[in-house]
Amino acid sequence: MIVVFAGDRLMGWYFKSQVSGSQFRYSKLYRGDATADIMVIGNSRGLNIYLPSIEALTSKKAISLCYNGMPGDLASVLTRDYIDRYPSVKTVILELCMVEMPDEQLLPGFVSYMQYSPRLDSLIRSKFYQTWFTSKISHLYQYNNEVFQRAIYYKNRSDNDWTSDRSMSEKLVKEVGRYGMEFRADANQLQHIKTITDYCRSRSIEVKLVIAPFFPGFVVKNIDLLKSKTEMMTGCKVYDYSTVLQNSASFSDYLHMNIRGCKEFVQILDKDGFLTPDENTAQNNQIPY
């Protein structure tokens, strides 16, 4: 048992050093190396808000805290942690669809970063107590997740261009009618969005809610319901770009753009002035209810 314990701690220490030195977004966030003007939060569709294009078009520094399947509670924790550490951020862009497709199993993957954030520690403890407890006993277990793998993958390279880049097969393009999704506008998930928007406002940070493009012909029901409920709860306008791209060559699948699509989308955002923060920041995108 002594050997098991000692090895666990030794390897745990080594992996911790690897994670903390990584160029991965959350390593940078908690290391104090993630200063930016624009911060993007969301799930895999949030990854489509392509940072290299934003930086090229606006000359502003941008960082993304998006992750595949990001649930609202985790997004809320990460955003608040970010704002606390980098209060100079001007704009937070939030891809709203994360409330519709949260992967609740993602949260335990963030045990690798739990030691850096009391909020994260508390969230994991409350929702995944066994994982939290086990990771206290075994430090190696803290690195048994995909988030850690990505931290290692991005050890010495930037993750700014992390997004899926492939073209859709003819077969998938033709069969788009077979697929679709229905938004539920779940109040619990929206509450996390409200927490984020309130937190941003309280620190005079502009927050913009956006729905990124879906594949043309991919049926998404209740988008309007999601928009209206979100606007009502948060008082923030939702920018709906769900149908703005009509070329199938711009997509990786029905839910995600490829890099070509990402670039086109960011250009549209820039053209619309979406990426330009208002001088009066936090108040300007509010709906005057």
């Binding site: 098991v4 090895g7 666990d8 390897m11 066994q130 190696l140 048994n144």
Partner: peptide, 19 residues
């Protein structure tokens, strides 16, 4: 034995899926 048992426990901690 110690090396193998410890190694397996570490591998399970690092790669195990406990769902």
């Amino acid at each position: 034995r110690v090396a193998l048992f410890a190694g397996l426990i570490w591998l399970i901690a690092l790669f195990g899926t406990f769902s």
